[in-house]
């Protein structure tokens, strides 16, 4: 079994069998992470650069940990404090790093399509760790892994994605993945934060009513309101957003069933989700983070195997 692609740029380019392979391999890596020595020698001869042009806590640490658990050598690059601040282009920066014999690039960039651009110009395998408002494939994979772990399968499950759909790369990657794996998807939020034509393009449901959506779903993936990407007011206030679209304990208690609550982080407590929901037993937010390392190990391992063919 092999991946059908050399890079992990987005879920859009993956086949269902690729997703299955990554999730199955991740399950084996999760077992590795329970061992006394949580490390395997698979990528001993691989050097990986983590190229982060945008802030990150979870994803950067998770990737770095995944690389170290696979015994790869890692270099960390953050845009601030580098020559990018002096005006060096992305391609120049990467080519300079690659000339020091680096095999793989994990990158996050605020421009959508930046990793796709790089993939056309450099020989190294690229893993997209989030590009602008386009995709965040490893987040969608770890979300899928977490749902599968909790509910056994993705097929036929009803997943709601709630919140700032417009600015969310997590939402887009999740929609692609869930549709490919046979889950039903509803996106919910204020009309100003849900792009037009989403329904037609992806065959998913769109709802502006959070309560109805929660009644329908098995899993609610709650997204962060991305104030940093909003350059115009799209709702009147955070308080009002919380009242109309926030997930509260009271709302969950009124459902008469226990749904699974997910959030990709970082959480705006008291905005899209209340603290007593985020910290409740229903929430698998911290399991998502835990699974992130195993899923990223799987993706890197499978891509590194692919690398030698070229």
């Amino acid at each position: 079994m092999q991946l059908s692609t050399r890079h992990l740029l987005g879920i859009k380019d993956l086949q269902a069998s690729d997703i299955q392979l990554i999730l199955d391999t991740a399950a084996q890596f999760k077992e590795v992470l329970q061992r006394p020595i949580k490390k395997v020698p698979s990528l001993r001869d691989v050097t990986i650069v983590n190229l982060f042009y945008e802030n990150s806590t979870r994803t950067r640490i998770s990737f770095e940990l995944a690389e170290k658990r696979l015994s790869a050598d890692t270099i960390n690059f953050t845009a601030s404090g580098s020559s990018a601040a002096k005006g060096e282009t992305l391609l120049d920066t990467v080519n300079n790093i690659l000339s020091m014999k680096v095999d793989m690039v994990v990158m996050r960039h605020s421009a959508s399509g930046a990793p796709h651009f790089l993939a056309q110009h450099i020989p190294a395998a690229i893993v997209n760790a989030g590009d602008g408002i386009n995709e965040h494939p490893t987040q969608a994979l770890l979300d899928a892994f977490s749902i599968r772990e909790k509910l056994g399968t993705l097929e036929g499950k009803k997943v709601a994605i709630i919140g700032d759909i417009m600015h969310s790369r997590v939402a887009l990657s999740n929609i692609y993945l869930l549709k490919k794996m046979g889950a039903e998807v509803t996106v919910a939020g204020p009309p100003t934060l849900i792009p037009k034509y989403l329904q037609q393009s992806f065959g998913i449901n769109v709802s502006y009513n959070v309560e109805e959506t929660l009644k329908w779903c098995d899993v609610a993936n709650v997204l962060r309101i991305q104030l940093e990407r909003q350059n115009q007011p799209l709702f009147s206030s955070l308080r009002e957003y919380n009242l109309a679209f926030g997930i509260s304990r009271k709302l969950l208690d009124s459902l008469n069933k226990e749904i699974v609550i997910m959030h990709p982080g970082p959480i705006n407590r008291g905005v899209e989700i209340d603290s007593d929901v985020a910290d409740s037993k229903q929430s698998i937010i911290l399991q998502q983070v835990e699974n992130g390392v195993a899923v990223r190990m799987a993706a890197l391992y499978l891509l590194a195997g692919k690398r030698s063919e070229n």
């Binding site: 079994m1 092999q2 392979l21 199955d24 391999t25 399950a27 084996q28 890596f29 077992e31 590795v32 395997v40 020698p41 698979s42 990528l43 001869d45 391992y301 499978l302 590194a304 195997g305 692919k306 690398r307 030698s308």
Partner: peptide
Amino acid sequence: LDITFYRDDVHKELHTANQTT
């Protein structure tokens, strides 16, 4: 015990991992 991740030919051929218990 599954030894997939300890193989010395990761770059020649990719093997599917099995369960370790």
